[in-house]
Design a binder for these strands. Structure first.
Lengths: 255, 255
DNA sequence: AGGTCGGTTGCACAGGCTGCAACGTTCATT
DNA sequence: AATGAACGTTGCAGCCTGTGCAACCGACCT
């Protein structure tokens, strides 16, 4: 929509392929050298483009800094919430959102069940890392050495008979979860409560958060809960798409 | 230099702070809403800006993609070479550049000594990982679990009496190297050859490569070689600066 | 010296960007 | 249901600003 900016921005992907000198940039843009020079200068002033010692242009550090800052200020919760609320409106059960941080898995959002029976959990509180479905997803995505190290140093409290008993079992479970792309907790934390969970991935494919639907046996059986899996995964995928900025949002009045 | 582009680019750091709507962007830019709209649209078309479901603008995924692509196409060797050559011109000794890859440390560049006595090494060849100064730097920067795992499964051949004898000693050495930010190999690989090495870091501070100066005893003593350390470190820092796109290059005719 | 190549500068022209004002939507309020 | 506010969007006229040209500069090679 803005020719000048359009041209300037077209330089970036071009430089991403590798360093280029003024002439090459001008050619590939189809503009006069002097024009290319001014665009490059502007980009350079903003640090998006950098000039190496052989005078050729490269993408600059600012780009990395921006990308990183944007990452950090990206609030999964903010993006996820409407989706979680919609899922809760559809099925009525408790919906959780959790992230992995500093060796812990934390709930960062929760939409309460519409049923009178609620489960105990609090936003900001660490979850039972060895049994919770969301924890399995988050840990399953860690690089192998870290995952192994973490699994080995965890405690494995037997909340119920179906709790994960030890590191060995946990590692097997994580491998399975990693493989299938979703996770469950069937009475592993509280005898009567089941969960199904799905991962939320960032632009690079790494799992940045996980969400789950939980319900007590008295409301729905484990099998019934499992029928919600496709819906949970669809919700998680929708959040992933929006979080990673991939989802093409339909423009209002553009042709 | 180009007003339009300048304004457009000013939007990026602004959005890095967090999502903003059209009005906020226009205000902080000091332009009319319609102007801001067109700039944002252009940015959006290039994927640098993304519109979330509440219509607010955010930095887009393309930014990450660009940063990543640029990273991958960045060739340390290409950037480092002139610096290595300059260092070699200054001191006359053999200069090496090495990276860590797939559990090995490989020489990827070499500038031969000006002295008749040369050392045996070849570009692309794995280095003696347990004793080489560059290897120590590269391994010292690995995350602790990987470092430990690697140190444990390595062999510790006694090339000389001063070779690193076992994993335990190696881990201590790596800790020291990590601490001091440089490394040496004093006759650990070949009795008569010494090296001093310094790390090259990327924009995120991680060690991406390491460089060293090597010379046989018959040319300079270990102590004399050590006096080159500041020069080696300065060279490595210069490469780091350029590799990470941080170094501000003086503009030719700008006031 | 002469020639080429790449980057840089000054300038005149007009193309494209700007701000304005009016319109369309959505949402909250009465 | 009507009103109004807030926000995004569009068309337009004016003129700012980006454009291409040509000349200049400096480095490098023959």
């Amino acid at each position: 929509m803005s020719q000048t900016v359009d041209r300037a921005l077209s330089i970036l992907p071009l430089l991403a392929e590798g360093p280029a000198d003024l002439g090459q940039v001008a050619d590939r843009l189809g503009v006069h050298k002097s024009t290319a020079l001014r665009l490059l200068r502007t980009l350079h002033e903003h640090g998006l483009v950098y000039r190496q010692s052989d005078q050729r242009y490269r993408l600059g550090a600012r780009l990395f800094a921006l990308a990183q800052e944007a990452m950090e200020n990206l609030d999964v919760r903010e993006i996820a919430h409407p989706h979680l609320a919609r899922l809760n409106a559809a099925c009525g059960h408790t919906v959780h959102l959790a992230v992995f941080e500093e060796g812990e898995v934390l709930y960062i959002d929760k939409v309460e069940s519409r049923y009178p029976v609620r489960m105990y959990s609090r936003i900001g509180k660490p979850v039972a890392i060895t049994v919770a479905a969301v924890a399995k997803l988050l840990l399953a995505d860690l690089p192998e050495p870290e995952r192994r190290a973490l699994a080995d140093k965890l405690d494995y409290p037997m909340y119920t008979a179906r709790s994960t008993p030890n590191a060995e079992a946990f590692r097997r479970e994580l491998a399975k979860v990693r493989e299938q792309g979703w996770a469950t907790d069937l009475g592993g934390h509280e005898e009567s409560i089941n969960c199904v969970a799905a991962p939320i991935r960032g632009a690079d494919g790494r799992v940045v958060a996980a969400m789950s639907v939980s319900a007590p046996n008295v409301v729905v059986t484990a099998d019934e809960l499992l029928t919600l899996l496709p819906q949970v995964r669809r919700t998680a995928d929708a959040i992933s798409g929006e979080y990673s900025g991939r989802t093409p949002i339909k423009e209002a009045g553009t042709r």
